[in-house]
């Protein structure tokens, strides 16, 4: 981790919004917006994600870091900017649960990393499958908190197969963290142990799919 990333991470963890804005403004004097995102914002969020997984930082810091970065990136790379990563079409959803925090964090991290994606809010299986097919989604991020909701991912994946569509599914949330075999059991393509890891995995898929 270079000094710039380390310093930016410290500003985020201490929720220093003004300091973070100044750091990005400073970096933009020597780098393009997409370089700032890829070389400072994303690595800092990845470090924070790993630190959360290790119990070194708290969810509130992950959440606020995502919010701060989302706003910063929105300012330097608006949704209409051609450098925004729109393809392949992707979406995020909270499946069945009413606990929206995990999705909110990952959505912020995705946007802070330059991605554009649909936010489906909270949906049950039928509505989700219908919407994914209608929107021609190719990458679906599913967040859950409760075990029964996690098990419903299996039905989502089965329905995609039955419909003959290829949708890559990445899952995240507490049940998957407490049982690291669960994501395979439900037929997902991957799990994100933290928000930044999920973003990195989806980013890799997107490059593969565009190639």
């Amino acid at each position: 981790m270079n000094d710039q990333v380390r310093a930016f991470r410290a500003l985020l963890e201490s929720l220093d919004r003004v300091g973070a804005e100044n750091a990005i403004s400073q970096a933009l004097t020597a780098m393009t917006p997409i370089q700032v995102i890829d070389q400072i914002v994303v690595p800092a969020l990845e470090e924070i994600g790993r630190a959360w997984e290790a119990g070194e930082v708290a969810l509130s810091q992950v959440y606020m870091s995502g919010r701060i970065c989302e706003a910063l990136v929105e300012a330097v790379l608006p949704p209409s900017d051609p450098d925004r990563k729109h393809q392949p079409r992707s979406a995020i959803v909270t499946l069945s649960d009413f606990h929206m925090m995990g999705k909110r964090i990952v959505y912020s991290h995705m946007r802070a990393s330059g991605f554009e994606l649909f936010d489906y809010g909270r949906m049950d299986v039928d509505e989700l499958v219908e919407r994914v097919l209608a929107d021609k989604i190719r990458v679906l991020m599913i967040s859950v908190l409760m075990l029964p909701s996690a098990l419903k991912v299996a039905e989502v994946c089965r329905r995609f197969k039955e419909a003959g569509v290829v949708v890559r599914v990445i899952v995240g949330g507490a049940p998957f963290l407490f049982d690291d075999k669960l994501w395979r059991e439900v037929g997902a393509d991957a799990m994100g142990r933290n928000a930044a890891e999920a973003v990195a995995l989806v980013g890799g898929w997107m490059q593969e799919m565009e190639a």
């Binding site: 929720l15 509130s60 959440y63 606020m64 606990h99 929206m100």
Partner: peptide
Amino acid sequence: PVMQMGFDRYLDLIF
């Protein structure tokens, strides 16, 4: 408050 208002909105309130 996580149930009363949602976790993200609750954190926003705290801060």
